[in-house]
Design a protein around this nucleic acid. Structure first.
Lengths: 404, 404
DNA sequence: TGGAAAGTAAGGATACTTAACTTAATCACA
DNA sequence: TGTGATTAAGTTAAGTATCCTTACTTTCCA
């Protein structure tokens, strides 16, 4: 799970104390409030040690009392929990249509929220809009910008850490410019980290959605494009260059469509062009559906029984089944979640994808629809920011205590 | 890298000492011999602490002196290194043609070796042959069976830990029986672990072959079947059910072959049937090559300039390029190594696969031939056994010291 | 013989454990 | 209802292990 900042290093006595305090805090966070005696039993530490550590944590503002619990007989136990107000984080989802921004406390509870339409014509305008909305949310939460411990930002494309810029975000002009995110960092006066939106959505579903408890979990983001996030043992799999899950580039499977269109189309065709929202509309039109301009309209027509729309959805399901089959063969996940605008139409898609999958491969993971929908990226951003911020807040408040 | 056995647990003082001794030993192992003063500088521990820890390690038989090193001026430093004779491990490769067995010391040096042809008609006969050869190797190394700290065994198929049996090893009759590996365990009087052969080969190439230093490394085993192993950050990716990398089940790509053969063949066809050794022979025959019964013969004919053989190899390369493209899209590795009987013919395959890959996808990892060849599984088995055995030997010898 | 680096010894600080104690609740029973 | 037994939470005090600092010795080269 989360590791103490100074792991894999030699230990001296101060690290020992600090590490034990961190471990107690993590236990309170993940397993819920507990008394000192309970913690001593669970961790193997002695009661006096636990008492001393909790006194330190409380003085540092990292833990607080959380009511009492009476055992069957004997003295009433005082329960402790992490103090969620010890720090705050910012999550940002830079979507094509909307900018979504939230401030959360260390327990992950959202304390302020801002959604604004993404009207920016230029990359700089979008960056400025993000900063303005974020500052408004921070103020609403009763904080000053510098008080936010970490901000995690989700965007289409792949973040190049060494160049400090986004790659492969073709749809957003100027978004790959260097220095763009320095502008956001300066505007927020906070450490930021930038992540692929599908990856954050995967983390979001893993943290609080359909992927909770999964050992190896794959999230398919099917919308304007086709993206994927892989969460293994609670950690995101990013690949060697941060491009893991870019299955939009997959060669398209050999199927009737590919054969009909001839070899040239096969070479150019990628899975993204065959499975993203746009292709559902295109296929439906080719099959005779009129008046459908968006994927949502095609799905609505299918629900109303239109045969062309249904056929288009069959084709879409076949493409997705291929994607799932490929991912299953390579990774062996126990769960694949369909998300994004198209993936959200689980009522129509899920059964068809499963049926097609039966024909393709014996390795079949569980399929499930997204639970978080449009919120997945934002919640994943908060989860990511929390993962970074928690040890940092702990370090800072512990150190402040020592100086006294 | 390797973690102390008791990580993520609260620490008391004894664990502190034990942990620091373990860390010093790991440092000696990975960074080479060093003096006490050197270790103190590197780790941040004080000189007296390092001296005491090394005295303990030496008394426990875990470390030993390794010569001296004179600085520019001043007293000569005494160097220390891990004592490789502190324990031994066994590695076993149960291949279709050969049983390969090696005994290695804790430094990974092979001290005894046995290769015997796999003549077993029944699974039990194979198990008995493994035990006999292993006992012979252990004796040759001057050990008794119980003295081996761990034995790692590689076999085709997927090891099911909860059922304690192998799954999906279709080619070996009876090999999936429960209790088969209990027989080996009893015969060796040692803790054993069982692993997929492609996975072990991947670990072998990562530990001592073409994959050294790779961040995310994929090994393709192309031979009788088609297998894959993924090593991420030094750890094997096994998937949720241990079936990660079973790309033999991949749907076959749409290509001229698929179209020609019609839809029914596409449904049945898998990548394994299209890319394994047998298919090279089949394709070459279809294209007019006569007298080639094995893949090796096809490759030899190609080297001699035979056009049918060359065409068959082009097709094989296209199938492999598809496999690499799929894996790259999903995982983003920085290196893909081709191994196994077919993969070993890198002179003919590598360039063709790279060329085909250019047509398929912009995400192109580095390609390289296997360095270890047929030895990869065995070396991976030793590396795996060592990873398990090192902490165990450390624990045992440390504990023995405390009891005095 | 002096300088420099390796290595050791002694003393002090710290964070842990154990064991015994106090506190505060329930229960049994007069 | 009151009183003591019982049980569990939490504290205090004493003891111990491990580490660090400081000062020292050893051993080599110039």
């Amino acid at each position: 799970m989360s590791s103490h900042p100074a792991a894999e290093q030699p230990w001296n006595r101060q690290r020992l104390r600090s590490n034990n305090e961190w471990l107690l805090l993590e236990r309170l966070r993940t397993a819920g409030p507990a008394s000192r005696a309970q913690l001593a039993r669970d961790t193997g530490l002695s009661k006096p040690t636990v008492s001393a550590a909790l006194a330190n944590l409380e003085q540092a503002g990292l833990a607080r009392e959380a009511g009492t619990l009476a055992p069957e007989r004997g003295r009433v136990a005082v329960l402790y929990e992490p103090d969620p107000t010890a720090g705050h984080v910012l999550g940002v989802d830079i979507g094509r249509g909307w900018l979504r921004i939230a401030v959360a406390d260390l327990a992950g509870e959202i304390v302020a929220r801002r959604d604004v339409p993404n009207r920016g014509r230029t990359a700089d305008a979008v960056a400025d809009a993000v900063v303005a909305a974020a500052r408004a949310a921070i103020e609403e939460a009763g904080l000053v910008p510098g008080a936010v411990a970490h901000a995690a930002i989700g965007t289409p494309g792949v973040w190049d850490e060494s160049e400090q810029r986004v790659r492969y975000a073709a749809n957003l002009p100027g978004w790959g410019r260097r220095g763009l995110f320095d502008r956001i960092r300066a505007g927020l006066d906070t450490e930021i980290s930038v992540h692929n939106d599908a990856n954050l959505a995967a983390l979001g579903e893993y943290a609080r959605g359909a992927g909770v408890g999964s050992r190896l979990f794959v999230y398919l983001l099917i919308g304007t494009g086709l993206g994927m996030g892989v969460v293994s043992g609670g950690r995101l799999q990013k690949g060697a260059h941060g491009a893991a899950g870019e299955i939009g580039f997959l060669p398209r499977p050999g199927g009737p469509v590919a054969c009909e269109e001839g070899e040239r189309a096969q070479r150019r065709g990628t899975l993204e062009s065959a499975a993203a929202a746009e292709s559902v509309v295109r296929t439906a039109r080719e099959l005779g559906l009129r008046g459908a301009g968006t994927a949502k309209q095609v799905f609505d027509a299918a629900r109303a029984g239109d045969p062309a729309a249904l056929a288009a959805i069959d084709r879409e399901a076949a493409q997705l089944a291929y994607a799932v089959a490929v991912v299953s063969s390579v990774l062996d996940p126990d769960l694949v979640v369909l998300g994004g605008g198209v993936g959200h139409s689980a009522d129509l898609l899920l059964g068809r994808v499963e049926q097609e999958l039966h024909r393709l491969t014996p390795l079949r993971p569980r399929l499930a629809p997204s639970l978080l929908g449009e919120e997945a990226v934002l919640i994943g951003a908060l989860a990511t920011a929390l993962r970074t911020a928690r040890p940092e807040v702990f370090e800072r408040r512990s150190a402040a205590l020592d100086r006294v």
